[in-house]
Amino acid sequence: MNNAYHYCTAVLLLLWASSVCNGQEKKDDQFSIFNPVPKELMRDMETDRPDVTESPITVDAGHFQLETDLVKWVKEQSEEKQAHTLLINQMNLKIGITENTAIQLGYQTYGIEKKKEIGSGIKEMSQGHGDLTFRIKQNLIGNDKGNFALAILPYLKFPISKYEDDSRLEAGIIVPMSYKLPGDWKLGFQLELDRLKDQDQQAMHTEFLQTITLSHSIIKNIDGIAETYYTYDFKAHQFSNFINAAIQIEVVKDFKLDAGLNYGLQHTADKHYFLGASYRL
């Protein structure tokens, strides 16, 4: 709990500093959740999915955006256990509060988890809703103009899961960045520091994550995304490396579908396969 408190304190200080900077850079901050941005002035739709790298662009003030893993299958492997999890509607509701600030509510609607102890062969199965996550995205640079964008995205995950009976309070801070390259290529980076539960016990550990992603249109309204990232567990002194690939299809304006995988290269690294959607109001 002390670690979560320290994370929250750091997050609040960062948000205060960023709000001061934004206030100095843009004095005519007229739009808010109570005074929505008119449709003709809205930014192009940006999503935090399907890659791990989040977008530094916020949802326009007064508007909503729903992003979800419609179906997601996760394979986890450790020295002691194997776990297979099927998630249905792992959603993230994003609400534009001001021109540069948005809040996000994440909820795992339904999950089925099957575990097997490698030594004894004992199997377990649990199901139900998952955890609740609260996030705040504060854009610092490039929300409306320029080739470079930067944001901070702190979060808290509350352990209310029914299918995962050993979940714990987790917290972290994410720093996503993006850069528009010539020829409509887009480069993304992300730094992230998390306080997470250990996989096989109730103890906690600190983990660092760094990503790089590259995206480009394949054909009209279909984007291809390639990504790689690694995590480092400070407690176990262990790296895990991942390669990811996805496509995102703009079906109609403000509605996108996507599919892809996040594939852990090490034997104990997670493997994720998903089908998702994003919709903006």
Rank of each mutant, 00 (worst) to 15 (best):
H63M: 10
V52I: 05
G62P: 02
R49T: 11
K186E: 11
S278H: 03
L12F: 10
A151C: 07
I152D: 11
K157S: 14
S19F: 06
L140H: 02
T68V: 10
R168A: 12
V52P: 00
D166A: 11
E54I: 11
Y110L: 03
F148P: 00
A236I: 07
L140Y: 02
H129D: 03
P159M: 09
P38N: 07
E192R: 00
Y179G: 00
G264H: 09
A10S: 12
M42Q: 15
D131L: 06
F255D: 03
T231H: 02
L275H: 01
L257T: 07
A259S: 05
A4I: 15
G264S: 07
Y273K: 01
F134S: 11
E164V: 01
S215D: 12
K114L: 04
K186I: 05
L209P: 00
S161E: 06
G111Y: 04
K137T: 08
V59I: 10
Q127R: 03
E76V: 14
E79D: 14
R280L: 13
A171S: 13
F242T: 07
K81R: 15
A259V: 05
W73A: 08
S240A: 13
F31G: 10
P56S: 00
T228C: 08
Y273T: 04
L257S: 05
L281E: 09
G264I: 08
G146P: 03
N262F: 10
N244P: 08
K271I: 11
K115S: 15
Q238G: 00
L15S: 13
G142M: 00
D29F: 10
S240N: 14
L93Y: 06
G62A: 05
D166K: 14
N241F: 09
H237A: 09
M125F: 01
F234M: 12
